[in-house]
């Protein structure tokens, strides 16, 4: 993980400016539901080791775009490529094995398992692949993977709760746990769907600090977020989605000043 999770910088990124080669490319994606165009002509390029925010009003198609990216939904047309590999038509587990991890809007964790066990699952997936019949060696003797899981929990500040049921955590802790589950896999691309939704200001700030550390470790991140404080704290680039189309893209300050964005996103209200 975070060998990475320890959120220490990746070896080759220490002190270097992030490289800007596009690692993730959404090309001309269309998706409609019963005649309603949720996404049309969506093009998006995300540079390696950058943080790209996608913003837009409710119902703009942000989550649909993320669902298309991770294989939950198949696009009607268009392609999604990641690191030179086409993701379109692949199953979610194949996309994850290719190096893409996702944090959901509503935390998707293993509520009946304890926190340590929650972390062991993604660590096992990273180590063993999508299917391995390893039924004869007890899990609690596999120190390497246990230590990795404990470090991951340390990094998100949940180590004290490692034997508690994940279902009993607060919403903020659940989000941090889910984030740790993604980070333990040391993904090449991290997709975050409103990582601070429903959090208190205190929890939001803690999460921003964590995300900044992840960003500094050199991970490529795509984040969907409503909270502009989060967007401007993290993003290198912002794309604005409205009614299924990308209407503006650029650095946070460029987007902030765009009249088009103010009209679509802020309902034309002067800032």
């Amino acid at each position: 993980m975070v060998d990475s999770l320890s959120l220490a910088k990746r070896e080759d990124s220490i002190g270097n400016a992030p490289t800007k080669n596009a690692i993730f490319d959404v090309h001309d994606v269309h998706k409609s539901f019963a005649g309603l165009h949720a996404l049309s002509e969506v093009n998006l390029k995300v540079g390696e080791r950058t943080t790209h925010a996608i913003i837009g009003p409710n119902g703009a198609g942000k989550s649909t775009l993320l669902n298309v990216c991770v294989g939950r939904l198949a696009p009607d047309s268009g392609t999604v490529t990641f690191d030179g590999e086409t993701l379109t038509g692949k199953k979610p587990y194949e996309i994850n094995q290719a190096g893409v991890a996702r944090v959901f809007q509503t935390p998707e964790i293993f509520s009946d398992l304890n926190l340590l066990e929650n972390l062991l699952m993604p660590a096992l997936s990273k180590r063993d692949g999508s299917f391995t019949f390893n039924a004869f060696r007890a899990l609690n003797t596999q120190k390497d993977i246990l230590q990795k899981a404990e470090h991951a929990l340390e990094d998100v500040g949940l180590i004290e709760k490692r034997y508690e049921h994940a279902g009993s955590l607060s919403r903020g802790d659940k989000r941090r746990l889910e984030l740790a589950m993604c980070l333990i896999q040391n993904p090449k691309l991290l997709l975050l769907d409103e990582p601070t939704a429903g959090m208190s200001r205190h929890d939001t700030n803690r999460t921003i600090d964590l995300l900044v550390r992840i960003k500094e470790s050199g991970m490529t991140i795509i984040v969907i977020e409503h909270d502009m404080h989060v967007v401007f704290s993290l993003a290198d680039h912002v794309s604005v989605l409205a009614q299924g189309k990308i209407i503006a893209a650029g650095t946070p300050s460029e987007v902030k000043g765009s009249a088009k964005v103010q009209e679509a996103y802020l309902g034309g209200a002067p800032q």
């Binding site: 991890a101 964790i109 993604p122 692949g129």
Partner: peptide, 8 residues
């Protein structure tokens, strides 16, 4: 979640 952390 199992699918999204890479398990078939």
């Amino acid at each position: 979640r199992m699918n999204y952390i890479g398990f078939h």
